[in-house]
Design a protein around this nucleic acid. Structure first.
Lengths: 130, 130
DNA sequence: CCCATATCGGACTCTTTCAGTCCTACATAG
DNA sequence: CTATGTAGGACTGAAAGAGTCCGATATGGG
């Protein structure tokens, strides 16, 4: 449906929050201030950390903070970190294969479309969300 | 998940088929040649007709054909005709409202993103699929 | 040393959406 | 009047999405 998942939406909000803060912030703080489910956001933060764009410190006074400058984090990266499938169609994916066996007659054009969409998502970074 | 639905994918294939043919084609013909479920494609064609980009004639020797030149049918139009939600997020939609009550802190930037994605989808037409 | 405060991460449920099927009605050329 | 088409409602099954629950682990401060 050509829609970003809630996971990505929440991820972007959280990263924006961290960027504005410039310091460590807890999941609780972010989820409260933005009306996001705590448990759900907790998972998302873990995924973002796994990607390496943020780091975490556990225990009292712990939380998450950015590892990179906001303008170094394009939306594409957030999407890739939080969604399994990030391609416009099956046939523009590497690890998937086109269901309609044989000649997919739109594969070429779809690849070009895919590239352009990626270019757009790449041109916007967390810095643009501030 | 930022993916076009099968409905749109099949719709594009069907329109490409009609464009290449330049004449009336039946659902059966299109579905057979492209490995698409007949029943499913039949519904899609009805939706495309309702939009006005193709016309139909019933009965023997009937079928579907383009109403517009291929370069007059942008992908956007196909998406709009075949998908309920065609926006990147809830908050960039007109008839939906942001679930997270109160201040959605990314609404502005998301609108700008939405515009750019639409521009891309608008720049590609059925003519480019040939 | 403890305990409150954090992240970590598996498992699970509920709801919605998507893809696809089935069946009946209607139109029309030959 | 019948073959061959589209028109369209209702339904099913599978998959993805969003959100919940619970226990484990780490850690700074009293």
């Amino acid at each position: 449906m050509l829609r970003l998942s809630k996971r990505v939406e929440y991820g972007l909000v959280a990263l924006q929050h961290l960027a504005k803060r410039g310091d460590v912030a807890t999941v609780r703080e972010i989820s409260d201030e933005n009306n996001i489910s705590y448990d759900l956001l907790a998972k998302i933060m873990q995924d973002l950390k796994r990607d390496g764009m943020i780091y975490s410190s556990q225990g009292v006074r712990g939380g998450y903070a950015l590892m990179l400058a906001p303008n170094q984090i394009p939306v594409t990266r957030v999407v890739d970190a939080l969604e399994d499938q990030s391609t416009i169609t099956e046939c523009t994916s590497d690890h998937e294969s086109c269901t309609r066996e044989g000649a997919c007659t739109i594969q070429g054009p779809m690849h070009r479309l895919q590239e352009q969409v990626e270019r757009v998502l790449n041109s916007v970074t967390i810095a643009q969300l501030l």
